Computed example of a mutant assay.
Amino acid sequence: MSVLAVLLLLEFIADKIPAVDNINDIVQTVVRPAAGGIVFGSGTSAQTAAIQDPGAFFTSGSWVPVAVGVAVALVVHLLKAGTRAAANAALAGIGAPVLSVAEDVTSVALVVAAILLPVLVLVALAGLAVVAILVVRWGRRRAIERRAAKALAATL
């Protein structure tokens, strides 16, 4: 638990520093999917057995939850790392602390909600999806209005 606490502290601090967060994401490309596979694989059965025969492990199908966990964690990690890299490039690094704090708050809120009310997580995610769709539609509408105003100004 002490090692996890130190890693959490390092992750928390590294995510706030613009160049360091990209380096951390590169290093974590191996760690996060592996951890996701282990957690997902161990969460699918009541008993975690030691692997005595790797051949039996693969023929029994016990590897499927581990592979799913690795895939899900890798996709989430790549989305996070890509978003962070793009934000740092676009905003000259000033977006790193803002994104990191938003990620921290969202993570804590979702974990607490998942423990207390799992259905609440689905409702919250659905709500966030609706808000995201509305924001995108609003942005598109504003862009169309701006183009129309420029076209009108050009004709006058």
Rank of each mutant, 00 (worst) to 15 (best):
M1G: 15
L4C: 10
V6W: 09
L10M: 07
F12H: 10
D15H: 09
D15C: 13
K16Y: 02
A19M: 07
V20G: 01
D21R: 03
I23E: 12
D25L: 08
D25H: 15
D25R: 04
V31Q: 04
A34Q: 06
A35V: 15
G37H: 00
I38Q: 04
F40D: 00
G43S: 06
T44K: 02
S45N: 09
Q47W: 04
T48R: 03
T48Y: 08
A49M: 12
A49L: 07
I51V: 15
Q52M: 11
D53E: 13
D53R: 07
P54M: 11
A56N: 09
T59R: 11
G61K: 09
G61N: 06
G61L: 07
W63P: 00
P65Q: 08
A67Q: 06
A67M: 09
G69D: 02
V72M: 02
V72Y: 03
V72H: 01
A73E: 01
V75Q: 05
V76L: 14
L78T: 04
L78S: 07
A81T: 03
A81W: 02
T83I: 11
R84P: 01
A87I: 14
A87E: 05
A92Q: 12
G93L: 09
I94G: 13
G95Q: 11
G95C: 10
L99H: 08
L99K: 08
L99Q: 12
V101C: 02
A102W: 10
D104E: 12
T106Y: 09
S107T: 14
S107E: 11
S107P: 04
V108H: 06
A109R: 10
L110H: 05
V111N: 02
V112F: 12
V112S: 03
V112H: 07
V121P: 05
V121H: 07
L122P: 06
A129G: 15
A129Y: 08
A129C: 11
V131K: 07
L134C: 13
L134N: 12
L134S: 15
V135P: 00
V135A: 01
R137Q: 10
R137N: 07
W138V: 05
G139E: 00
R140P: 01
R140D: 03
A143C: 01
I144R: 15
E145P: 04
R147D: 08
A149Y: 09
A151T: 03
T155E: 08
T155A: 15
